[in-house]
Amino acid sequence: MSTSTLRNVRFAGMATCVPKQVVHSIHDVSPHLRAERERLVRNIGIETRRVCPDWQCFSDLAYDAAEKLLDDLQWAREDVGALIVVTQSPDYLVPATAIILQDRLGLPHSTIAFDVNLGCSAYPFALQILGSMIASGVIRKGLILLGDRSSYKHKDPLKDPLFSDAGTATALEYSEDAAPMYFDLNSDGSGYKAIIVPVGGHRSPFQLEHAIARKGEDGFWRSDLDLILDGPAIISFSTQRVPPMVENLLGYAGVTKGEIDHFVFHQANRMINETIRKKLGLPEDKVPSTLREFGNTSGASLPVTVTVRLRDALAQGRTRLLLCGFGVGLSWGGAIVDVEGAVFPELIVS
């Protein structure tokens, strides 16, 4: 069954870190491409993106977010029972990035640390994984470090007007007074080719010829190491699967749309997100967006949007959020979370 409930798990805090470099979708490309980019920006709604320099990894951003969050929460490092890293941009194929970050953060050897390979849908899944560990009594406090260096999938960040980089940290803890969290999580591997980097794994190991770039119809050069997106398939999947899931989650939780303060969706692109919003009949002021300034930050787009758009609102008192991620896998999921008294540092730029 895709729906589930977690009890005794409190949302304690969230921090988001983005790189300093800002790339403009129109102004930073060659003059002969600007008219085409202007049309594209109108459709996808992304004007600027945050891009890591060559030396900076997702884990560096996640480390800065975690350090700030732990300091603001005043959590003792020895009390962190689990560290879950959710990314498709690991430092290495082996070992797991979580093990490296456990050491960098000064967490004890008793901290359970492991990686999860999920992208755009990741945030609700991550909450369920760590929340289940806390609810079962395995641990009492834990961290989720989630995000991607998505821009690496195109070596030239100017050729991709969509993806942006970010690292986030989320803290959960045991509390008998916590409101229930509700989930609806789904997967459909038959659509795995819709969003894929086809070369580099064991199914298709890297060969030198895979690195040879070929010029596409859009004028950009791409190799077999670049990300492949099946646009029509992604649009169809997102707009057909997400709205029914949201309705099902609301029904399962016994919550009406009016009782949700904010619906936070994965920031895919403006066309997809607006179609989902309209299908669900949601007012614009209940559906915050960070697409224009931060682009598509993969699984981190939910924490980015919460941090940038809802930080002040969350400081006012108890707030009910519906968090929805969808994409690569294919996978999609949602979570209804009540937030009260949580710590939200200002956006970190590193």
Rank of each mutant, 00 (worst) to 15 (best):
R10Y: 05
I228G: 04
H24R: 12
Q56H: 06
D218W: 09
T87H: 02
T297V: 09
N8H: 15
E259V: 13
P232I: 07
A178K: 00
S164I: 01
G201F: 01
K286N: 03
A76Q: 13
E67K: 13
Q240Y: 09
L172I: 11
W332P: 10
Q88E: 11
V41G: 06
P124K: 05
A213Y: 07
D115V: 03
A169P: 01
T305G: 02
P31C: 09
D103N: 12
V328A: 15
M1E: 12
I139W: 10
E38R: 13
L227A: 05
E247M: 12
D218K: 13
L118G: 03
D188N: 15
T307Y: 02
F163Y: 05
A313S: 14
C324T: 14
S89Y: 05
L302E: 08
R7E: 13
S132F: 04
I139R: 10
S187P: 00
V306M: 06
S121I: 03
G219F: 11
T16Q: 11
A12T: 02
P31Y: 08
E274H: 06
A169T: 08
D218G: 10
L250H: 05
D261I: 11
W221V: 12
F237I: 06
A96Q: 15
A15N: 00
L70W: 03
A335D: 02
I195A: 02
L250W: 04
N117L: 15
I276W: 00
I336D: 07
A211L: 08
I234F: 08
F344E: 01
A171P: 07
V304S: 00
E217K: 14
R203H: 08
L105C: 09
H210K: 08
A213H: 11
